[in-house]
């Protein structure tokens, strides 16, 4: 029990009434060990941010139990809130204040008597020392994000929640934030719960991942555990001439063959072993294009949910979801 930083048991969040409300989270149970970077991966509207709101005490849990840093989120809210840090999806700082004044305010809010040394250390770590007296409204997005992470670390929290830490950032800033998250986890030894809808982000940063869709956690595991759930490689083949599907299906190891005109999808246990057999059957000059898709979190997500993480289908669901939430809130 002591090794668990975050534990939820069947937590449910419903906006509005039981009859007409919207179920944002449906009996979510997770156990996140101390010292891990746990990623909640799912499309927009899946319930990721709602889970963070419940765990940080910003929204009330409809039913179920949750413990963070050893304390009950509902009954020991103040104890939880003094042990967690939070990094918002949109950077939230006081723009009228300097970096140092933002740290001062955070220290006040966390009731820290001796915070200056730690604040100086964090500013050095995030390479913001020379800008500490500048108003944060003059900071770049990357600097603002770094300061926000520094605020979250000021009181030496046990757990940090990062809600979509790289949403809306350009590629280089995103890479920088990835390095920071990894560095922060290593240097400061905190447990990190981050949400993302970027598959490569979850893959790059997280020790463990929970795949969330329509308010339910469908699978949890390390990235490699999740990928091993999808054992097949998919060979995408485009031929110059029509191929007889019977010839392809007859090849040893073929699990499934799908065709659309001269484009083929062949599912096999191992592309490495299958490709020589394929080339022995079809002459290579008949092949216009060939590629292999190996198990990735993208294919895992597709297999588990039936849709791709960024497809239009969930976007329609999200619009519907928010429309329902608005109606439920009146």
């Amino acid at each position: 029990m002591n090794d668990i930083a975050i534990e939820t048991r069947d937590i449910t969040k419903r906006y509005g009434s039981a009859a007409n409300g919207v179920l944002a989270l449906d009996r979510v149970s997770v156990a996140i060990p101390k010292g891990t970077v746990f990623g909640l991966l799912g499309p927009n509207g899946a319930g990721k941010t709602t889970l963070i709101k419940l765990l940080t005490g910003i929204a009330d849990i409809t039913s179920g139990d949750a413990r963070v840093a050893g304390f009950d989120v509902r009954r020991q809210s103040l104890a939880v809130r003094s042990r967690i840090g939070w990094v918002a999806a949109e950077v939230i700082l006081d723009d009228e204040f300097s970096a140092w004044e933002n740290l001062w305010l955070q220290a006040r809010l966390q009731d820290l008597p001796d915070w200056q040394g730690r604040a100086e250390q964090l500013l050095r770590y995030f390479e913001l020392s020379d800008r500490k007296t500048d108003r944060v409204s003059h900071f770049s997005t990357g600097m603002r994000k770094k300061l926000e992470i520094a605020l979250a670390l000021l009181h030496q929290p046990e757990v940090i929640f990062m809600d979509e830490p790289t949403i809306g950032l350009d590629v280089s800033t995103r890479r920088m934030i990835w390095e920071i998250v990894t560095g922060v986890h290593r240097e400061f030894g905190v447990t990190v719960l981050l949400t993302t809808h970027y598959i490569e982000e979850a893959d790059a940063l997280c020790d463990r991942i929970g795949i969330i869709d329509h308010g339910r956690i469908i699978a949890t595991g390390t990235p490699s555990e999740l990928k091993s759930r999808v054992r097949s490689d998919v060979i995408q083949l485009e031929s110059k001439e029509p191929i007889d599907p019977v010839r392809l299906r007859a090849l040893p190891g073929v699990q499934d063959v799908r065709a659309q005109g001269n484009e083929w999808q062949i599912r096999v246990p191992s592309a490495d072993e299958f490709l020589p057999r394929l080339f022995a059957t079809i002459q290579t000059d008949q092949i216009r294009r060939i590629s292999v898709e190996q198990p990735s979190l993208e294919t895992v997500f597709l297999e588990l949910t039936g849709h791709r993480i960024g497809s239009d289908e969930p976007m329609r669901d999200i619009r519907k979801f928010y429309a329902q939430v608005r109606r439920a809130r009146g």
Binding site: G57, I58, L78, R81, S82, W86, A88, L109, F161
Partner: peptide
């Protein structure tokens, strides 16, 4: 939210 995710009531 920033204020309330601290021990502030």
């Amino acid at each position: 939210k920033r204020i309330l995710i601290t021990p502030t009531s």
